[in-house]
């Protein structure tokens, strides 16, 4: 009797302690993920080039040129050197080399808000940046709509993204775990954790649509039917400011996302987003698995 119990126990232990591979991301999700990455990369950097054409943000319907919320500009100091000045809510910061003034494509320090290595195209070229921006904006929107449709249809949204009741109950501990860089291991890593679900949902439901709508709010033609929305956010220049802030929030998401991808196993995570296969590693302490 005792030995058979031990055997059963041992075999159960064995299946848990042997690494196994799950199929984590379906092909459409993987394709759409990388298209989205490409779009966001190009939209952000061409967006910086567009911003450079008038490097100031305002609140309201129009531009109050003498009182921007944020401005990046350059001036010459007493030695005649070009210095970059970033003004935020009236406070000036010297940001030479990065914002306001940086080494341009001709090799000398020039007046430009974002530096060449952060803009598409590199040299000052608003017309070309707009072409990149609008082309990839369309791709971003079409890809995003396909993603939402697919996620609802395939139940990816309800199965993998919607937080469960247990998720909500565990949210406090999940916050502590994230702060301590303690990540789910073993079988628990096969599912998204609650903070992960909420941040993905926030990007998909709030930030994504908002950045598109605030882009459309800047269109003088769409203004004829979206005037109410422009008014709702305080005017066209407010919409432009919100467009910028949401882009910053998406960068923040990107960096946290990449950080988590690295600390929870770069190779395994990358493989799962390329081939779909994700390895579940056994946990040393089987009690971890069960809780």
């Amino acid at each position: 009797m005792a030995s058979s119990v031990a055997e059963t126990d041992g075999s159960a232990r064995d299946t848990l302690s042997r690494p196994r591979t799950i199929y984590r991301h379906t092909l459409p999700i993987r394709i759409m993920h990388w298209i989205n990455f490409l779009c966001m990369f190009i939209l952000l950097l061409s967006g910086f080039q567009i911003f450079n054409a008038h490097a100031a943000l305002y609140w309201g319907e129009t531009s109050h040129f003498d009182g921007p919320l944020l401005a990046m500009d350059a001036r010459r100091n007493d030695e005649g050197e070009m210095i970059g000045i970033t003004t935020l809510f009236g406070h000036e910061f010297e940001t030479t080399g990065f914002l306001g003034a940086s080494t341009g494509s001709r090799g000398d320090v020039e007046r430009r808000a974002f530096p060449t290595w952060l803009t598409i195209p590199g040299p000052r070229w608003l017309a070309m940046a707009r072409r990149w921006h609008f082309f990839f904006a369309w791709l971003f929107v079409i890809n995003g709509l396909l993603y939402v449709t697919y996620s609802l249809w395939s139940r990816h949204a309800s199965r993998d993204l919607a937080p469960t009741r247990a998720d909500w109950r565990g949210i406090g501990r999940s916050i502590v775990d994230h702060a301590l860089l303690r990540h789910p291991r073993g079988e628990a890593a096969a599912r998204y954790n609650v903070l992960q679900k909420l941040s993905y949902l926030f990007v998909i439901v709030v930030l994504g649509p908002l950045v598109v709508l605030m882009g459309l709010a800047m269109s003088p033609h769409m203004n004829t039917v979206l005037g109410w929305m422009v008014e709702l956010v305080g005017g066209r220049q407010s919409a432009r400011t919100i467009h910028f802030i949401v882009a910053m929030a998406l960068i923040a998401f990107f960096f946290v996302h990449v950080f988590e991808v690295i600390v929870t196993g770069l190779a395994n995570n990358m493989r799962s987003m390329i081939t779909g296969r994700y390895k579940i590693k056994p946990t040393e302490d089987s009690s971890d698995v069960r809780d």
């Binding site: 195209p121 070309m128 072409r131 082309f135 039917v225």
Partner: peptide, 29 residues
């Protein structure tokens, strides 16, 4: 990206967005 911007063919691909902007914006309003 800079080399593509300088090319002849790639900006033409990007230009398809202008057609979409015009036709879709006008269709929606």
């Amino acid at each position: 990206c800079d080399r593509l911007s300088q090319s002849v063919w790639f900006p033409k691909v990007l230009d398809s967005a202008e057609f979409l902007n015009r036709t879709v914006q006008r269709a929606l309003t």
